[in-house]
Design a protein around this nucleic acid. Structure first.
Lengths: 166, 166
DNA sequence: TTCAGTGCAAACAGTTTGCACCGAG
DNA sequence: CTCGGTGCAAACTGTTTGCACTGAA
C-alpha cells in the first residue's frame, strides 16, 4: 500500500491551514499535559507517529512506528488502543473508518475543520478531500430538527495514476 | 433499538420507486434462479427476512429472523454470512457499514438508485436519506480522472423526536 | 446422480478487559 | 509516595475457513 502526501485537487473549498506535523505534536503534548494527563514515553511516541504521518495510520502502523521511535523501550499494542482512544476523547485525533475492519487515526486540525477521504481501490492510496456541499446537507438536517450532527463520508475508486496504468 | 419505516424528509431529490418487500423478494428469487443458483430453504428465508425489513438488518438480526421463518428447519450463522455476500455479488442486496463493527444488509432498489442513512445516536433509529449534491461531487471526481467511483456516507446525530424528549 | 450449498467446529483478526507492576508528577 | 498508565495474558466479537454430509435440480 504505497502512499505519498497526495495532491490537493479542485474539490477543496477552503485553503486549509495544513498545520505541520511538529506543530501538531507540540500542541497535542501541551493539551495532554493541560488535561492533567501524564506525558509517558509511549504516549509521546504515539503522538509523534500519528502527527508525522501524511495519511491516516492504522493501529498496527502506529504500533510499528512507535516501536522504532522508542527503540529499546517498548510499547504494547494494547497501549496503542488505549492511548489513541484517550487522544480521541481529548479531541487530539480523529478515528477514520474506511470500512475494512481496521481503525485508522489522524491528527485533528486545530482549526476545527474536518475532512473526508478518497481511497483508491487499486493502490490503497488515501487522499484527503474537502467537500463543501456536504456541510450544506448537514445544515438542512439541522433545520429539520436534527441535532448533534456528524457524518462519515468516504469515496472509493481508482485514482488517476492507477487508472492510466493498466 | 426501536425502529419504524421513517418519514421521507425534504432532502429527497427524486421520488423513489420504493418497491414493496414482497415484490423485491419475488424479483430476488427470480434473479437467483436465473443466475443458476439453487433456491434452498435457508436462502429463501434469508431473502424474505431482508426484503421484509424496514431498515438495514444486521447479520445477527437476519439470522434470528430466518430462524423464525424456518421454524423447525435450521439455518446456521455461517450460512447467513455466505448467502448474504453471495446476494451482494449478485447485486440483490447492499452491505451497509455504520462503523459499529457489524455488517448490515438491505435489499437493492431495482431502479439502481442507492441511498445513505441517518443514524440517531440516541435511539439507534436508521433512516434512509437521498442526497443529490453528493452525486455531483462524484461527477467532479470523475472529471478529474478518477474511475470506478463509489462512496460511503452516513449521518449521525439525534433525530427530532429524540431531541425533543430530554 | 451430482455438485452447489449447508452445518459444525475450529481458526482468525481486531479489539477489549483483568490484574499486578511501574514510573511520572 | 500515589495512582494513572503500562505490559502481559486471556477473553471477546464478528467473520472466515476446512471438511464431510445433504438435498435441489
Amino acid at each position: 500500500m504505497p502512499q505519498k502526501p497526495s495532491h490537493v485537487h479542485t474539490l477543496s473549498c477552503k485553503s486549509q491551514s495544513h498545520t505541520a506535523g511538529a506543530e501538531l505534536y507540540d500542541l497535542a503534548l501541551t493539551r495532554l499535559k493541560d488535561g492533567g494527563f501524564k506525558l509517558t514515553k509511549p504516549r509521546m511516541a504515539l503522538l509523534k507517529a500519528v502527527s508525522s504521518a501524511t495519511r491516516p495510520f492504522s493501529t498496527e502502523e502506529i504500533f510499528q512506528a512507535s516501536k522504532k521511535l522508542l527503540k529499546s523501550d517498548k510499547c504494547d499494542l494494547v497501549t496503542v488502543y488505549r492511548s489513541l482512544s484517550r487522544f480521541q476523547e481529548l479531541g487530539l485525533v480523529s478515528q477514520i473508518d474506511l470500512g475494512d475492519g481496521v481503525s485508522r487515526y489522524e491528527m485533528n486540525d486545530p482549526s476545527g475543520h474536518h475532512h473526508h477521504h478518497f481511497v483508491c481501490s487499486r493502490c490503497g492510496k488515501i487522499e484527503p478531500l474537502t467537500l463543501c456541499e456536504l456541510e450544506t446537507q448537514e445544515q438542512a438536517l439541522k433545520q429539520a430538527g436534527y441535532t448533534g450532527l456528524s457524518h462519515r463520508l468516504e469515496f472509493f475508486g481508482v485514482c488517476p495514476p492507477c487508472t492510466k496504468k493498466r
